[in-house]
Amino acid sequence: MSEKILEIKDLFVQYTAGKDIVRAVNGISLTLEQGESLGLVGETGAGKTTTALSIMRLIPHPPGKITGGEIRYRGENLMEKSEAEMRKIRGHEISMIFQDPMTALNPMLSVGDQIAEVVRLHQKISRADAMRKACEMMEIVGIEGGRANEYPHQFSGGMKQRIVIAIALACNPSLLIADEPTTALDVTIQAQVLELIEQLKQKFNTSLLLITHDLGVVAEVCSKVAIIYAGEIVEYGTLKHIYEHPSHPYTIGLFGSIPNLNETVHRLAPIPGLMPDPTKLPAGCAFAERCSEACEACTKSAAPYVEIEPGHMVRCIKFAGKEC
């Protein structure tokens, strides 16, 4: 078995909004091995991006704060790193691709400069060499290197995302966090970008944490999947586990909301209701209110994780040996 590159244990993140405390992430645990790709799936506001920013230690503080747990990168606890040590890790060991390529690039700087910046930060090379490296990276992501002196407004959305990817991969990071890399793009470009990420992942042997709300994207890229709901992981397993035997009612609900090409369904089965207000999370299972199978026990105490088959964890009272 290869090395554990990332290990998150019992992570808690809170935001303060006036008097309220928004509990964005509530005890997430994840592990990611070298070269593996993990999909973190959940709806808007489930705490996906917050988890990603926690790994980078980029939670805006205030209002955000990591209140508990640890994040280990190659065995070292990132929570204990100084800011200067974190700066050496960011962009070099762990990189992040952001959600919206339209705003992720600085409109005042040429794209070449923006790629070269990260290279110069982590490698002791001259400005000219960094620029050469930037052009190389642009070629790798499929943009003519001669366009390095152009500015973000001269590129299309898909190309901007390629540049964001070039920035993220310029220093060969061991771990790449992609936060909804395809959400802002149209479908044809989505496929290209995913393919590109997949190729580069193979080429540089990078581990990938892919954050998305799109189960189709996960199926294409990831080998493991974690379903996140209201800041908790409700189901975790390999791609096969999740897609063939979705077990948590929420996961089943997610699949129910996707149209299936092979069956004629007149109406999709969306999950009714909304995620609970993260300032007032219920005591028991956060999904109980929307769950068709919920019973009284669900609202009282949170269910433990149960391993229903090797490597397939579910957090639902159904599997905890209790009857509703």
């Binding site: 980029l58 962009g91 952001f98 919206d100 600085n106 409109p107 990260v118």
Partner: peptide, 21 residues
């Protein structure tokens, strides 16, 4: 802005993030 976060994610120092970006 997002690009400021991008700059931080590159591992850039806070001073340069503020002044350059």
């Amino acid at each position: 802005e997002d690009y400021v976060r991008t700059a931080r994610a590159k591992g850039q120092t806070e001073f340069v993030v503020i002044m350059k970006h």
